[in-house]
């Protein structure tokens, strides 16, 4: 099958490649670009482990072909840290609040939370839970992920983080 030429911006860098039309975006990112942060958990667009930010939207890259992303601006977990190399508030929040265990869902979860906070910079717990419902976690029970996102929101808003009382 003839390959197609694609060009896209990934984490601020322009990449060009020849891909088979059936190459999934997740495989392109992981195998060709060796960005192995986004993971494959279900392959059927349920788990969200493959989530990347594409043209300002959270997208499950297992359910999109690389050719469809031609011309897109993509950000993965590898592009999440601040320009000076320090951790993004979300990355910091996940560690501070113990929002991860095995780490497999974390890149997708952080990437999704990034877009959520772009759209709503001070979400309630309910809004956070609804906003990350496309990402499954098998380890944490989500409670500390919610706190991690609240931590990040507070930090980005420049206000002290107050843990909700038990």
């Amino acid at each position: 099958m003839a390959k197609s030429q694609v060009a896209m911006t990934v984490n601020g860098t322009t990449v060009e490649a020849l891909v088979e039309p059936r190459t999934l975006l997740i495989h392109f990112l992981r195998e060709e670009l060796r960005l192995t942060g986004p993971h494959i958990g279900c392959e059927t667009s349920h788990c969200g482990a493959c989530t990347v930010d594409l043209n300002g939207k959270s997208v499950k890259s297992c359910t999109m072909f690389a050719v469809q992303a031609n011309g897109a601006d993509i950000r993965t977990i590898e592009g999440m840290a601040n320009p000076d190399g320090t951790l993004h508030a979300l990355q910091e929040g996940f560690r501070e609040m113990h929002g991860l265990q095995c780490g497999f869902c974390t890149p997708g979860m952080v990437t999704r939370a990034y877009r959520l906070l772009q759209e709503n910079n001070n979400p309630s717990e309910e809004e956070i839970r609804f906003g990350i419902a496309g990402n499954l976690c098998r380890c944490t029970g989500y409670q500390n992920i919610v706190k991690a996102i609240q931590y990040a929101a507070a930090k980005l808003n420049g206000v002290p983080f107050q843990e909700a009382a038990e």
């Binding site: 667009s45 969200g48 989530t51 939207k57 959270s58 997208v59 499950k60 359910t63 999109m64 999704r112 959520l116 609804f130 906003g131 990350i132 419902a133 496309g134």
Partner: peptide, 9 residues
Amino acid sequence: VADPQVRYV
């Protein structure tokens, strides 16, 4: 409908 990521697309 579905979840946030799916609703974007």
